[in-house]
Design a protein around this nucleic acid. Structure first.
Lengths: 211, 211
DNA sequence: GTCTATATTGGGATAGAC
DNA sequence: GTCTATCCCAATATAGAC
Protein backbone atom coordinates (compact mmCIF):
# COMPACT_ATOMS: atom_id res chain seq x y z
CA UNK A 1 0.00 0.00 0.00
CA UNK A 2 1.46 3.36 -0.95
CA UNK A 3 1.86 6.21 1.45
CA UNK A 4 -1.02 8.27 0.25
CA UNK A 5 -3.52 5.45 0.65
CA UNK A 6 -2.24 4.76 4.11
CA UNK A 7 -2.61 8.40 5.01
CA UNK A 8 -6.17 8.43 3.76
CA UNK A 9 -6.95 5.32 5.74
CA UNK A 10 -5.64 6.83 8.93
CA UNK A 11 -7.48 10.06 8.29
CA UNK A 12 -10.72 8.24 7.74
CA UNK A 13 -10.15 6.19 10.83
CA UNK A 14 -9.63 9.34 12.88
CA UNK A 15 -12.71 10.94 11.38
CA UNK A 16 -14.87 8.01 12.45
CA UNK A 17 -13.55 8.08 15.99
CA UNK A 18 -13.81 11.85 16.17
CA UNK A 19 -17.43 11.66 15.12
CA UNK A 20 -18.12 9.28 18.00
CA UNK A 21 -16.60 11.65 20.52
CA UNK A 22 -18.30 14.73 19.11
CA UNK A 23 -21.62 12.90 19.17
CA UNK A 24 -21.14 12.07 22.78
CA UNK A 25 -19.94 15.47 23.98
CA UNK A 26 -20.77 18.08 21.39
CA UNK A 27 -18.12 20.31 19.82
CA UNK A 28 -17.29 22.39 22.89
CA UNK A 29 -17.38 19.42 25.26
CA UNK A 30 -15.26 17.08 23.15
CA UNK A 31 -11.56 16.73 23.99
CA UNK A 32 -8.76 16.28 21.50
CA UNK A 33 -7.07 14.02 24.04
CA UNK A 34 -10.06 11.69 24.15
CA UNK A 35 -10.22 11.52 20.37
CA UNK A 36 -6.51 10.71 20.24
CA UNK A 37 -6.85 8.06 22.94
CA UNK A 38 -9.81 6.35 21.31
CA UNK A 39 -8.09 6.45 17.92
CA UNK A 40 -4.92 5.14 19.59
CA UNK A 41 -2.71 7.84 18.15
CA UNK A 42 -0.73 10.67 19.63
CA UNK A 43 -2.60 13.87 20.30
CA UNK A 44 -0.26 15.99 18.22
CA UNK A 45 -1.00 13.85 15.20
CA UNK A 46 -4.51 15.23 15.23
CA UNK A 47 -3.03 18.64 14.55
CA UNK A 48 -0.65 17.22 12.02
CA UNK A 49 -3.54 15.81 10.00
CA UNK A 50 -6.26 18.37 10.59
CA UNK A 51 -4.57 21.56 11.85
CA UNK A 52 -7.24 22.42 14.42
CA UNK A 53 -10.14 21.05 16.40
CA UNK A 54 -12.57 23.09 14.32
CA UNK A 55 -11.30 21.68 11.04
CA UNK A 56 -11.45 18.13 12.37
CA UNK A 57 -14.96 18.69 13.58
CA UNK A 58 -16.14 20.14 10.33
CA UNK A 59 -14.64 17.37 8.28
CA UNK A 60 -16.05 14.54 10.34
CA UNK A 61 -19.38 16.28 10.69
CA UNK A 62 -19.89 16.73 6.96
CA UNK A 63 -18.78 13.21 6.09
CA UNK A 64 -21.07 11.55 8.62
CA UNK A 65 -24.01 13.78 7.72
CA UNK A 66 -23.60 12.95 4.05
CA UNK A 67 -23.52 9.27 4.80
CA UNK A 68 -26.73 9.34 6.83
CA UNK A 69 -28.65 11.47 4.38
CA UNK A 70 -27.58 9.19 1.55
CA UNK A 71 -28.91 6.16 3.41
CA UNK A 72 -32.19 7.88 4.14
CA UNK A 73 -32.44 8.91 0.50
CA UNK A 74 -32.08 5.25 -0.47
CA UNK A 75 -34.88 4.27 1.87
CA UNK A 76 -37.02 6.71 -0.09
CA UNK A 77 -36.20 5.12 -3.42
CA UNK A 78 -38.85 2.50 -3.96
CA UNK A 79 -41.29 2.01 -6.77
CA UNK A 80 -44.94 1.68 -5.91
CA UNK A 81 -47.84 3.73 -4.72
CA UNK A 82 -47.40 6.55 -2.22
CA UNK A 83 -48.71 4.31 0.55
CA UNK A 84 -46.22 1.62 -0.36
CA UNK A 85 -43.41 4.14 -0.56
CA UNK A 86 -44.24 5.44 2.88
CA UNK A 87 -44.41 1.95 4.34
CA UNK A 88 -41.11 1.05 2.78
CA UNK A 89 -39.39 4.21 3.94
CA UNK A 90 -40.58 3.74 7.49
CA UNK A 91 -39.47 0.13 7.56
CA UNK A 92 -36.03 0.90 6.23
CA UNK A 93 -35.31 4.15 8.02
CA UNK A 94 -35.95 3.15 11.62
CA UNK A 95 -32.73 1.26 12.10
CA UNK A 96 -30.66 4.04 10.55
CA UNK A 97 -32.34 6.63 12.75
CA UNK A 98 -31.89 4.52 15.84
CA UNK A 99 -28.23 3.86 15.17
CA UNK A 100 -27.51 7.49 14.42
CA UNK A 101 -29.69 9.17 16.96
CA UNK A 102 -26.80 10.71 18.83
CA UNK A 103 -25.43 12.15 15.66
CA UNK A 104 -28.81 13.58 14.73
CA UNK A 105 -28.98 15.36 18.06
CA UNK A 106 -25.50 16.74 17.50
CA UNK A 107 -26.57 17.73 14.01
CA UNK A 108 -29.53 19.73 15.23
CA UNK A 109 -27.67 21.27 18.10
CA UNK A 110 -24.54 22.35 16.27
CA UNK A 111 -26.26 23.56 13.14
CA UNK A 112 -28.58 25.59 15.29
CA UNK A 113 -25.57 27.46 16.69
CA UNK A 114 -23.47 27.56 13.57
CA UNK A 115 -24.99 29.22 10.52
CA UNK A 116 -21.74 28.93 8.59
CA UNK A 117 -21.65 25.17 8.90
CA UNK A 118 -25.30 24.92 7.94
CA UNK A 119 -24.61 26.74 4.69
CA UNK A 120 -21.61 24.56 3.86
CA UNK A 121 -23.72 21.51 4.42
CA UNK A 122 -26.62 22.73 2.30
CA UNK A 123 -24.28 22.89 -0.68
CA UNK A 124 -23.04 19.36 -0.08
CA UNK A 125 -26.27 17.51 0.44
CA UNK A 126 -28.81 17.24 -2.30
CA UNK A 127 -31.86 15.09 -2.08
CA UNK A 128 -34.20 17.27 -4.08
CA UNK A 129 -34.57 14.76 -6.90
CA UNK A 130 -36.00 11.94 -4.78
CA UNK A 131 -38.14 14.37 -2.85
CA UNK A 132 -39.55 16.03 -5.95
CA UNK A 133 -40.49 12.69 -7.46
CA UNK A 134 -42.32 11.83 -4.26
CA UNK A 135 -44.17 15.13 -4.20
CA UNK A 136 -45.34 14.96 -7.81
CA UNK A 137 -46.52 11.38 -7.44
CA UNK A 138 -48.38 12.46 -4.34
CA UNK A 139 -50.15 15.22 -6.25
CA UNK A 140 -51.13 12.73 -8.94
CA UNK A 141 -52.71 10.34 -6.49
CA UNK A 142 -54.54 13.22 -4.89
CA UNK A 143 -55.96 14.26 -8.26
CA UNK A 144 -57.03 10.71 -9.02
CA UNK A 145 -58.91 10.65 -5.72
CA UNK A 146 -56.87 7.82 -4.25
CA UNK A 147 -55.65 10.18 -1.53
CA UNK A 148 -57.56 12.99 0.14
CA UNK A 149 -56.62 16.35 -1.25
CA UNK A 150 -56.84 18.45 1.89
CA UNK A 151 -53.22 17.88 2.84
CA UNK A 152 -50.53 20.03 1.29
CA UNK A 153 -47.85 17.66 -0.11
CA UNK A 154 -44.94 19.41 1.60
CA UNK A 155 -46.77 19.18 4.92
CA UNK A 156 -47.18 15.45 4.51
CA UNK A 157 -43.52 15.07 3.66
CA UNK A 158 -42.40 16.95 6.75
CA UNK A 159 -44.92 15.09 8.89
CA UNK A 160 -43.46 11.79 7.77
CA UNK A 161 -40.05 13.04 8.77
CA UNK A 162 -41.25 14.41 12.10
CA UNK A 163 -42.97 11.16 12.96
CA UNK A 164 -40.00 9.04 12.06
CA UNK A 165 -37.19 11.19 13.43
CA UNK A 166 -38.58 12.69 16.62
CA UNK A 167 -39.10 9.48 18.58
CA UNK A 168 -35.33 8.95 18.35
CA UNK A 169 -34.02 12.50 18.50
CA UNK A 170 -36.47 13.55 21.18
CA UNK A 171 -35.63 10.65 23.44
CA UNK A 172 -35.34 12.75 26.62
CA UNK A 173 -38.75 14.33 26.03
CA UNK A 174 -40.48 11.16 24.94
CA UNK A 175 -39.04 8.97 27.65
CA UNK A 176 -40.05 11.64 30.17
CA UNK A 177 -43.63 11.35 28.94
CA UNK A 178 -44.00 7.64 28.34
CA UNK A 179 -42.38 6.80 31.67
CA UNK A 180 -44.89 8.97 33.47
CA UNK A 181 -47.50 6.70 31.96
CA UNK A 182 -45.60 3.57 33.01
CA UNK A 183 -44.25 2.65 29.62
CA UNK A 184 -40.64 1.87 28.95
CA UNK A 185 -38.98 3.99 26.24
CA UNK A 186 -37.60 1.05 24.29
CA UNK A 187 -40.87 -0.83 24.49
CA UNK A 188 -42.61 2.27 23.27
CA UNK A 189 -40.39 2.39 20.20
CA UNK A 190 -41.43 -1.15 19.32
CA UNK A 191 -45.11 -0.24 19.37
CA UNK A 192 -44.36 2.92 17.45
CA UNK A 193 -42.57 1.03 14.71
CA UNK A 194 -45.54 -1.26 14.21
CA UNK A 195 -48.15 1.46 14.06
CA UNK A 196 -46.60 4.48 12.45
CA UNK A 197 -47.11 3.59 8.78
CA UNK A 198 -50.77 2.85 9.38
CA UNK A 199 -51.20 6.13 11.24
CA UNK A 200 -49.91 8.14 8.31
CA UNK A 201 -51.82 6.16 5.72
CA UNK A 202 -55.07 6.57 7.68
CA UNK A 203 -54.66 10.29 7.48
CA UNK A 204 -54.10 10.50 3.75
CA UNK A 205 -56.28 7.80 2.23
CA UNK A 206 -59.52 8.98 0.70
CA UNK A 207 -62.18 6.89 2.48
CA UNK A 208 -64.62 7.33 -0.45
CA UNK A 209 -62.24 6.02 -3.10
CA UNK A 210 -63.16 2.78 -4.91
CA UNK A 211 -61.00 1.21 -7.56
CA UNK B 1 -37.69 45.81 50.09
CA UNK B 2 -35.77 43.65 52.52
CA UNK B 3 -32.48 42.05 51.74
CA UNK B 4 -33.75 38.58 51.16
CA UNK B 5 -36.26 39.64 48.55
CA UNK B 6 -33.62 41.65 46.78
CA UNK B 7 -31.32 38.66 46.77
CA UNK B 8 -34.03 36.48 45.30
CA UNK B 9 -34.73 39.05 42.61
CA UNK B 10 -31.11 39.21 41.58
CA UNK B 11 -30.82 35.45 41.59
CA UNK B 12 -33.87 35.11 39.39
CA UNK B 13 -32.55 37.76 37.09
CA UNK B 14 -29.26 35.92 36.73
CA UNK B 15 -31.05 32.65 36.13
CA UNK B 16 -33.01 34.15 33.25
CA UNK B 17 -29.90 35.56 31.63
CA UNK B 18 -27.95 32.38 32.23
CA UNK B 19 -30.67 30.38 30.53
CA UNK B 20 -30.33 32.62 27.46
CA UNK B 21 -26.62 32.04 27.24
CA UNK B 22 -26.84 28.29 27.85
CA UNK B 23 -29.52 28.05 25.17
CA UNK B 24 -27.27 29.80 22.73
CA UNK B 25 -24.06 27.92 23.47
CA UNK B 26 -24.86 24.76 25.39
CA UNK B 27 -23.35 23.99 28.77
CA UNK B 28 -19.77 23.42 27.65
CA UNK B 29 -19.80 26.33 25.21
CA UNK B 30 -21.31 28.89 27.56
CA UNK B 31 -18.97 31.32 29.34
CA UNK B 32 -19.39 32.58 32.88
CA UNK B 33 -17.97 35.90 31.66
CA UNK B 34 -20.69 36.25 29.05
CA UNK B 35 -23.41 35.48 31.57
CA UNK B 36 -21.96 38.07 33.93
CA UNK B 37 -21.71 40.67 31.18
CA UNK B 38 -25.25 40.14 29.97
CA UNK B 39 -26.58 40.20 33.52
CA UNK B 40 -24.46 43.33 34.16
CA UNK B 41 -22.82 41.95 37.26
CA UNK B 42 -19.32 40.99 38.20
CA UNK B 43 -18.21 37.52 37.25
CA UNK B 44 -17.25 36.57 40.79
CA UNK B 45 -20.77 37.29 41.93
CA UNK B 46 -21.90 34.32 39.90
CA UNK B 47 -19.81 32.15 42.15
CA UNK B 48 -21.00 34.01 45.21
CA UNK B 49 -24.61 33.20 44.36
CA UNK B 50 -24.32 29.80 42.74
CA UNK B 51 -20.92 28.37 43.74
CA UNK B 52 -20.17 26.79 40.37
CA UNK B 53 -21.08 26.82 36.71
CA UNK B 54 -22.69 23.41 37.05
CA UNK B 55 -24.96 24.52 39.87
CA UNK B 56 -25.98 27.65 37.99
CA UNK B 57 -26.73 25.59 34.91
CA UNK B 58 -28.76 23.05 36.80
CA UNK B 59 -30.80 25.65 38.59
CA UNK B 60 -31.65 27.69 35.52
CA UNK B 61 -32.25 24.57 33.47
CA UNK B 62 -34.76 23.08 35.88
CA UNK B 63 -36.62 26.36 36.41
CA UNK B 64 -37.00 27.05 32.71
CA UNK B 65 -37.97 23.47 31.92
CA UNK B 66 -40.63 23.52 34.60
CA UNK B 67 -42.05 26.73 33.26
CA UNK B 68 -42.34 25.43 29.70
CA UNK B 69 -43.85 22.10 30.68
CA UNK B 70 -46.37 23.88 32.87
CA UNK B 71 -47.46 26.05 29.94
CA UNK B 72 -47.76 23.06 27.66
CA UNK B 73 -49.76 21.25 30.31
CA UNK B 74 -52.18 24.18 30.39
CA UNK B 75 -52.61 24.02 26.65
CA UNK B 76 -53.71 20.42 27.19
CA UNK B 77 -56.34 21.35 29.73
CA UNK B 78 -59.48 21.95 27.74
CA UNK B 79 -62.89 20.39 28.04
CA UNK B 80 -64.39 18.92 24.93
CA UNK B 81 -64.02 15.97 22.63
CA UNK B 82 -60.63 14.50 21.78
CA UNK B 83 -60.69 16.27 18.44
CA UNK B 84 -61.41 19.58 20.13
CA UNK B 85 -58.72 18.98 22.70
CA UNK B 86 -56.19 18.28 20.00
CA UNK B 87 -57.19 21.35 18.04
CA UNK B 88 -56.97 23.51 21.14
CA UNK B 89 -53.62 22.13 22.17
CA UNK B 90 -52.13 22.70 18.74
CA UNK B 91 -53.44 26.26 18.59
CA UNK B 92 -52.09 27.15 22.00
CA UNK B 93 -48.80 25.32 21.95
CA UNK B 94 -47.29 26.61 18.74
CA UNK B 95 -46.28 29.99 20.08
CA UNK B 96 -44.73 28.47 23.22
CA UNK B 97 -42.79 25.99 21.15
CA UNK B 98 -41.61 28.65 18.75
CA UNK B 99 -40.49 31.00 21.50
CA UNK B 100 -38.68 28.26 23.36
CA UNK B 101 -37.23 26.30 20.51
CA UNK B 102 -33.64 27.03 21.46
CA UNK B 103 -34.28 25.86 24.96
CA UNK B 104 -35.91 22.69 23.71
CA UNK B 105 -32.84 21.91 21.65
CA UNK B 106 -30.65 22.52 24.69
CA UNK B 107 -33.01 20.33 26.66
CA UNK B 108 -32.69 17.40 24.30
CA UNK B 109 -29.00 17.81 23.86
CA UNK B 110 -27.98 18.15 27.49
CA UNK B 111 -30.34 15.54 28.84
CA UNK B 112 -29.04 13.15 26.26
CA UNK B 113 -25.53 13.55 27.69
CA UNK B 114 -26.46 13.86 31.33
CA UNK B 115 -28.41 10.99 32.85
CA UNK B 116 -28.14 12.51 36.33
CA UNK B 117 -29.88 15.69 35.30
CA UNK B 118 -32.58 13.75 33.50
CA UNK B 119 -33.40 11.88 36.70
CA UNK B 120 -33.55 15.04 38.79
CA UNK B 121 -35.90 16.55 36.27
CA UNK B 122 -38.16 13.51 36.16
CA UNK B 123 -38.85 13.96 39.85
CA UNK B 124 -39.66 17.63 39.42
CA UNK B 125 -41.98 17.53 36.46
CA UNK B 126 -45.25 15.70 36.66
CA UNK B 127 -47.84 15.85 33.97
CA UNK B 128 -49.24 12.37 34.36
CA UNK B 129 -52.65 13.55 35.54
CA UNK B 130 -53.48 15.58 32.45
CA UNK B 131 -52.05 12.93 30.20
CA UNK B 132 -53.94 10.10 31.85
CA UNK B 133 -57.22 11.96 31.53
CA UNK B 134 -56.52 12.44 27.84
CA UNK B 135 -55.68 8.77 27.34
CA UNK B 136 -58.77 7.44 29.09
CA UNK B 137 -61.06 9.82 27.21
CA UNK B 138 -59.40 8.68 24.03
CA UNK B 139 -60.12 5.04 24.85
CA UNK B 140 -63.76 5.91 25.54
CA UNK B 141 -64.22 7.59 22.19
CA UNK B 142 -62.60 4.63 20.51
CA UNK B 143 -65.01 2.25 22.21
CA UNK B 144 -67.97 4.39 21.21
CA UNK B 145 -66.81 4.20 17.61
CA UNK B 146 -66.25 7.94 17.26
CA UNK B 147 -62.56 7.29 16.69
CA UNK B 148 -60.96 4.38 14.88
CA UNK B 149 -59.59 1.82 17.27
CA UNK B 150 -56.50 0.73 15.38
CA UNK B 151 -54.26 3.36 16.96
CA UNK B 152 -52.74 2.67 20.35
CA UNK B 153 -53.53 5.72 22.57
CA UNK B 154 -49.93 6.23 23.69
CA UNK B 155 -48.81 6.23 20.05
CA UNK B 156 -51.29 8.95 19.22
CA UNK B 157 -50.14 11.02 22.15
CA UNK B 158 -46.50 10.81 21.13
CA UNK B 159 -47.41 11.47 17.52
CA UNK B 160 -49.14 14.68 18.52
CA UNK B 161 -46.02 15.73 20.36
CA UNK B 162 -43.72 14.74 17.51
CA UNK B 163 -45.79 16.65 14.99
CA UNK B 164 -45.96 19.77 17.11
CA UNK B 165 -42.43 19.85 18.48
CA UNK B 166 -40.24 18.61 15.67
CA UNK B 167 -40.92 21.40 13.17
CA UNK B 168 -39.37 23.80 15.71
CA UNK B 169 -36.72 21.66 17.32
CA UNK B 170 -35.65 20.10 14.05
CA UNK B 171 -35.24 23.42 12.29
CA UNK B 172 -31.85 22.58 10.74
CA UNK B 173 -33.20 19.35 9.26
CA UNK B 174 -36.52 20.76 8.15
CA UNK B 175 -35.13 23.92 6.66
CA UNK B 176 -32.57 21.79 4.82
CA UNK B 177 -35.41 19.84 3.27
CA UNK B 178 -37.98 22.52 2.55
CA UNK B 179 -35.36 24.82 1.07
CA UNK B 180 -34.31 22.12 -1.37
CA UNK B 181 -37.90 22.25 -2.56
CA UNK B 182 -37.87 26.05 -2.77
CA UNK B 183 -39.90 26.73 0.32
CA UNK B 184 -38.89 29.14 3.00
CA UNK B 185 -38.68 27.69 6.52
CA UNK B 186 -40.82 30.37 8.13
CA UNK B 187 -43.42 30.20 5.38
CA UNK B 188 -43.48 26.46 5.83
CA UNK B 189 -44.28 26.85 9.51
CA UNK B 190 -47.32 28.96 8.63
CA UNK B 191 -48.73 26.26 6.36
CA UNK B 192 -47.93 23.65 8.96
CA UNK B 193 -49.82 25.51 11.68
CA UNK B 194 -52.93 25.67 9.52
CA UNK B 195 -52.95 22.03 8.52
CA UNK B 196 -51.59 20.03 11.40
CA UNK B 197 -54.77 19.62 13.46
CA UNK B 198 -56.68 18.40 10.44
CA UNK B 199 -53.93 15.94 9.59
CA UNK B 200 -54.11 14.33 13.00
CA UNK B 201 -57.89 14.30 13.11
CA UNK B 202 -58.06 12.69 9.67
CA UNK B 203 -55.99 9.83 10.94
CA UNK B 204 -58.06 9.10 14.03
CA UNK B 205 -61.67 9.77 13.04
CA UNK B 206 -63.74 6.73 12.27
CA UNK B 207 -65.08 7.42 8.74
CA UNK B 208 -68.05 5.10 9.32
CA UNK B 209 -69.27 6.80 12.48
CA UNK B 210 -72.69 8.52 12.43
CA UNK B 211 -74.15 10.34 15.41
C1' DG C 1 5.10 10.71 10.08
C1' DT C 2 5.42 10.11 14.94
C1' DC C 3 6.79 11.26 19.33
C1' DT C 4 8.09 14.34 23.78
C1' DA C 5 8.25 18.49 25.69
C1' DT C 6 6.59 22.95 26.06
C1' DA C 7 4.29 27.23 24.97
C1' DT C 8 0.04 29.80 25.50
C1' DT C 9 -4.33 31.03 26.57
C1' DG C 10 -8.82 30.60 28.10
C1' DG C 11 -11.79 30.28 31.70
C1' DG C 12 -13.59 28.52 36.20
C1' DA C 13 -12.73 29.42 40.78
C1' DT C 14 -10.92 31.79 45.11
C1' DA C 15 -8.67 35.32 48.33
C1' DG C 16 -9.13 39.34 50.34
C1' DA C 17 -9.98 44.42 50.49
C1' DC C 18 -13.77 47.42 51.02
C1' DG D 1 -22.64 41.89 48.83
C1' DT D 2 -19.49 43.66 45.52
C1' DC D 3 -15.19 44.44 43.49
C1' DT D 4 -10.00 43.56 41.87
C1' DA D 5 -6.47 40.70 41.51
C1' DT D 6 -4.88 36.34 41.06
C1' DC D 7 -4.62 31.42 41.06
C1' DC D 8 -4.50 27.25 38.61
C1' DC D 9 -5.67 23.79 35.70
C1' DA D 10 -7.23 22.06 31.47
C1' DA D 11 -6.94 22.08 26.74
C1' DT D 12 -5.48 23.67 22.18
C1' DA D 13 -1.62 24.21 19.72
C1' DT D 14 3.38 24.24 18.27
C1' DA D 15 8.56 23.33 18.23
C1' DG D 16 11.77 20.28 17.39
C1' DA D 17 14.15 15.69 17.95
C1' DC D 18 14.07 11.33 15.79
Amino acid sequence: MDKMKKKLNIENHIIEIAADVFEEKGFAGARMQQIADQAKINKSLLHYYFRSKEKLFEKSFIIIANRIFAKLGQAFNFSGSISEKITNFLENSQYILWKNRNFLILFINELNQNEELLKKLMDEINMSQELNIFLSQLKEEQEKGILRNDVEPIVLLVNIISLSVFPYVGKPIISQIVEQLNYDYEDYLEIHKKQIAQFIINSIKNPDYKD
